[in-house]
Nucleic acid binder design. Structure first.
Length: 599
DNA sequence: GCCGTTTTCGGCCCGACTGTTTTCAGTCG
């Protein structure tokens, strides 16, 4: 990352180095609580919207770092060392004893710090390839607690790791969750199946799937039959574990699924527990202990006599801990527990926000038709948007520079606008259509249609579509220049980020967001998971900088309008309310009044 | 290494599952 012309360490890198140090400490067999504090610090750093490098400069407030929960005197010094030198004494010392490739070993299933440490001391194994050789040669059998079965499992794990597909997009994971749930539901006596874990929290990607199953068939005395049913599902590729009330398996695409079957009486406790996040739960249980209670996936119990205080619903559990119920999207131990306590106590300040919902969205300002690369007509899109309860939409087909989409030149853009206005009339006020264009930002930031054309349109979305390989400075300058064009009303997909793909263009987002806020250009969050643009951290940053935000689907077909669901999820994760998003305005007139005025 | 309405020391979440074991250590979520 660049700052005032200098190349400095960004928060993500600082967090990664702290997390790696935690892993090395663990391999070194050091105090687990010290390890945890490094992990916690890494998480805290990752969540910050301001770059910590700016807080380590000599003239900045020395207390600023300490104000972050989880960062004390020692960790603040570590961060200063990292920013100044690229490493820190503890990390450098650990790396003289161990090799960084050992961290890769920890990602193999069944491999933890103790095993990695033993492999290193007994066999000098420090990387996956050497481990594979040792396992195939049978060297592991000589080691304590390692037999034939462990070796087989490890080799399978290594093979899977090598073709590893990593994390899955939230929409794809949801589709799998639905399919698996339908199969599980065929067993009589199963009533409710709820995806928990990071899917319920609305993370953009999930590493595995947690499915929570309840119903009469899940009562302790009869659950075994239901467990057998789950363990025999036809789409299971590999069964990983099968216990009294838990089944773990992977699908052919390597997605891991954990299914838990739990009695109805403890449904709320189980849902709370398996939704996480881990750090949210840890803090919650600490809070329970302070009140003489203990929380597990079965119940919130009073310690002195083991009496159940709450178990059936999440609401009961949070309330018993003097907190309001917390929406799953906020459960990241990022201030939500304090806010929930304030809400429960009826305090006016610092409570939980009323998060934005799908119903708050009244318009969608970015979509395509078959005039360029969409699949439907203007009328189709209008009717579909109306059916979904929208009050206004903008039709924004591509401009000429995107030749592969049959992009429009000036004359076509104006003719298309006339047709959009015609359909608007035909809709007789049931929904308002705004005439727009998604214009391409060219090399030096100029737009690829004439200003005289843009002047006749309601909505101009300016987006970068090419040269993602340019250096960040150049891309940033290009976007900044496009913002200066007075016709630019919305900055479309500002980072060009393609989730799970390696080639998003780098951009100095903070600079761009600041300028957009100053000029009153609205910044788009693209709701489609495949094009997921700003993550919750970016969205928080945008709010902090005073940006006007819009969430658009960039729909190319009718069903794409439903992408709004995923966009809303990310907005909620960023603690945003309806007031933070422009396309919650009740009418097209109100929306236009909030956009940058036309020149 | 962090933290504090039991505060500067002594705590730091909880339970299930696996493999290799005869009572448990390590891993996982």
């Amino acid at each position: 990352m660049h700052l005032n012309g200098k190349n400095v360490m960004d928060n993500i890198t600082i967090a990664r180095l702290l997390d790696e140090t935690a892993a090395l400490l663990e391999i070194d067999g050091q105090d687990p609580f010290r390890v945890r504090s490094y992990r916690r610090a890494a998480e805290a750093v990752e969540q910050q919207t301001t770059q910590l490098a700016t807080l380590t400069e000599p003239d900045s407030d020395p207390k600023a770092l300490l104000a972050i929960a989880g960062i004390g005197k020692g960790m603040a010094q570590n961060i200063r060392d990292l920013v100044a030198t690229g490493t820190m004494p503890l990390r450098a010392e650990l790396l003289t004893k161990y090799k960084p490739t050992m961290l890769e070993l920890l990602r193999l299933p069944g491999m933890g710090p103790k095993t990695v440490a033993m492999l290193w001391s007994a066999l000098a194994v420090a990387d996956i390839d050497t481990l594979e050789e040792a396992a195939k040669a049978g060297h592991l059998l000589k080691l304590p607690r390692m037999g034939q079965k462990f070796t087989e499992k490890l080799l399978k794990g290594i093979a899977d790791h090598k073709k590893n597909t990593g994390r899955f997009r939230i929409d794809q994971a949801t589709a799998f969750a639905d399919r698996i749930s339908a199969l599980i539901r065929e067993f009589p006596g199963i009533e409710t199946i709820t995806p928990a874990g990071s899917l319920r929290r609305g993370r953009e990607t999930v590493g595995d799937l947690d499915l929570l199953v309840t119903g009469p068939a899940c009562e302790p005395d009869v659950v075994a039959a239901a467990v057998d049913h789950v363990a025999a599902l036809p789409l299971i590729d590999k069964l990983i574990a099968k216990g009294q009330n838990k089944v773990s398996f992977t699908l052919r695409n390597q997605l891991q699924v954990d299914v838990r079957l739990l009695p109805r009486a403890s449904y709320g406790a189980a849902l709370q527990y398996f939704t996480g996040s881990k750090h949210h739960n840890v803090t919650l249980r600490q809070r329970a202990i302070k009140r003489g209670l203990t929380l597990s996936e079965y119940a919130l119990l009073r310690v002195e006599d083991n009496v159940i205080v709450a178990a059936a619903t999440e609401q009961e559990i949070y309330n018993a801990l003097d907190m309001a119920w917390i929406p799953p999207e906020l459960r990241e131990n990022c201030g939500e527990l304090e806010a929930a306590a304030a809400s429960f106590a009826g305090k006016a300040e610092g409570g939980l926000p009323t998060l934005i919902t799908r119903e708050d969205i009244r318009g969608d300002l970015h979509m395509h038709t078959f005039e360029t690369d969409g699949a439907c007509s203007i009328r189709d899109m209008a009717e579909a948007a109306l059916a979904r309860g929208l009050k206004y939409i903008a039709i924004t087909d591509h401009s000429k520079n995107l030749a592969m989409t049959n992009g429009m030149d000036d004359a076509r853009a104006l003719a298309h606008a006339a047709r959009i206005r015609q359909v608007n009339t035909e809709m007789e006020g049931r929904i308002t259509l705004l005439a727009g264009v998604e214009v391409d930002i060219l090399g030096a930031g100029e737009l690829d249609l004439e200003d005289s054309t843009l002047a006749q349109l309601d909505i101009v979305v300016a987006s970068v579509h090419s040269r993602f390989d340019q250096p960040a400075e150049q891309m940033t300058d290009r976007v900044l220049a496009a913002l200066e064009n007075p016709h630019t009303r919305i900055l479309g997909h500002p980072t060009g980020r393609k989730l799970l793909r390696r080639d998003p263009y780098a951009i100095h987002l903070e600079k761009v967001l600041k300028r957009a806020a100053e000029l009153g250009v609205a910044v788009e969050h693209n709701a489609a998971p495949a094009r997921a643009d700003l993550n919750d951290l970016h969205l928080r940053m945008a709010k902090q900088l005073g940006c006007r935000l819009v969430v658009n689907t960039d729909a190319h077909a009718i069903e794409d309008l439903d992408y709004i669901r995923w966009g809303i999820t990310q907005l909620r994760r960023a603690w945003l309310t309806a007031a933070d998003v422009l396309n919650t305005q009740p009418t097209a007139e109100a929306l236009l009044a909030n956009l940058r005025p036309k020149p």
